[in-house]
Design a protein around this nucleic acid. Sequence first.
DNA 1: ATCCTACGATGGACAGAGTCCAAGTCAAGA
DNA 2: TCTTGACTTGGACTCTGTCCATCGTAGGAT
Lengths: 136, 136
Amino acid sequence: MSDLLERLRERGWRMTSQRRVVAEVLDGDHVHLTADEVHARAAQRLPEISRATVYNALGELVSLGEVKEVSTDGRAKRYDPNAHRPHQHLVCSACGTVRDVHPTGNPLADLPPDQRFGFTISEAEVTYRGLCPSCV
Amino acid sequence: MSDLLERLRERGWRMTSQRRVVAEVLDGDHVHLTADEVHARAAQRLPEISRATVYNALGELVSLGEVKEVSTDGRAKRYDPNAHRPHQHLVCSACGTVRDVHPTGNPLADLPPDQRFGFTISEAEVTYRGLCPSCV
DNA sequence: ATCCTACGATGGACAGAGTCCAAGTCAAGA
DNA sequence: TCTTGACTTGGACTCTGTCCATCGTAGGAT
Ligand SMILES: [Mn+2]
Ligand SMILES: [Mn+2]
Ligand SMILES: [Zn+2]
Ligand SMILES: [Zn+2]
């Protein structure tokens, strides 16, 4: 998935230096950075980039389906570049680390029709919580 | 579960008029309120109750295990008085309504050991998202 | 290569959600 | 009734995120 920049250009996303560094920060590892963390990393390469621009770029990447928003707690949203392979999250209750996990089975299958209350359900998000090895 | 007040008194929770109205607001059938919604309803019965007091009381009820915090999106947390029967949530993507649901099976069983990465997992939260009948 | 202009970037004000604190009040035991 | 530590209050403050007027520039047109 390292051709994020390429895909964006092909989709007609106007490429500015600011958008490039935001995309580069997200590309690569499957991290789960907050908007301010993305801003901090982007600012290492482009010191005058503004918070508003980072928020704008992240919002567009989410609209384009290239990044997913993850809100594991009531704190800052995290931005997940692993948008193409469905997965769930494992969150450390102590340090807040977020890991991708791939559970077996489909949680939607566990919700019988009489528990759907007329909703048209489009997705099921699972968050596993516990302590990571460093926080035992 | 209408003896919430009774349980709290038995557990030595100092009963003030403010705490009483907060507990009474939650004890009814209006589940999944935000802190400000709780404050608004409490203020109908006790006009001068402050936001800080509502936050304090909610935080203590959560610590006591009598109320659960639910953060379904990046917005305000909701406070769920249904803390004694394990359940999951069905959320309307349009209007934000939250309903309790009781899926079959245990989501923890869907996470094989090689997907636990050394974590000590204590719970699995499932959020089903979709459109409610009024928002089709 | 230069020009144009619509789209993007900027920073500061603003808003929503929640926390913190010093000062005042009161529940409940003695 | 008295006493006292726990509770409440309002406002200031933090954190996260949005909005907006103005300025700058990417990239198509010439
Ligand atoms: Mn992820
Ligand atoms: Mn519930
Ligand atoms: Zn940890
Ligand atoms: Zn709805």
